[in-house]
Amino acid sequence: MDTRSGFHHSLDGLRSELLAMGRNVEQLIHEAVESLARADEKLAKAVIDSDDEVDGAMSRIDELCLRLIALQQPMASDLRVIGTALKIATDLERIADHAVDIAKITIRLNGEELVKPLEIIPQMAEQAKDMLRESLLSYTERNVHRAAALADKDDGVDKMYSTVMTEIIGLMGTDIAKNRQLTHLMLVASHLERVGDHTTNIGEAVIYMVTGKRKDLNV
């Protein structure tokens, strides 16, 4: 018998709220990269506008967590669920910020022709999106193995990032306009690399939530 069914029902509500935020952020990353690939300024603006929604979701999750702590005095695994939600919401909000930064770069590039077609950056974006999806799935399923697998995926993103850097440095010359564009693309790669890191944070939070133990997924 569950003697705290109302409280546990609220925890389910917290979970759904967090997953909805996660899906929203996943979509933003997708659209930000799309806007860049297609030089779609309108889509980029839509991404920037959606950030308020993500911030709103984070505040709601924050408030819900603090209210549950104050009113319900959660213990043990319940407490870990709430602490984890606070952390994951913060990481999701940061990921959304990176999506916004990528969208802003789309706008700054202002439709100019790219020095070279994007090749590795879309792969990085795919991998980062996959990691975000996996991290949220590990949360829904309380799946420690899925969470731990993010470490290897993150190594993949890091390798692609260093490939992009090397390539971009090689392409740089004396043409200032070209260098400016290349620097923006390097920043895009850097944002995607950070997205990967945030998903490993989410994975670590899930592992703590389920087992109560700390594990570093980003060594």
């Binding site: 018998m1 003697t3 959660p74 213990m75 043990a76 319940d78 407490l79």
Partner: peptide, 20 residues
């Protein structure tokens, strides 16, 4: 430790109100 991550499932169930 007991109130953040107890070892025994019975302790966990009791302190989170999932008892019985």
């Amino acid at each position: 430790k007991i109130f953040t991550n107890p070892n025994d499932q019975r302790t966990e169930d009791y302190i989170t109100g999932r008892f019985g």
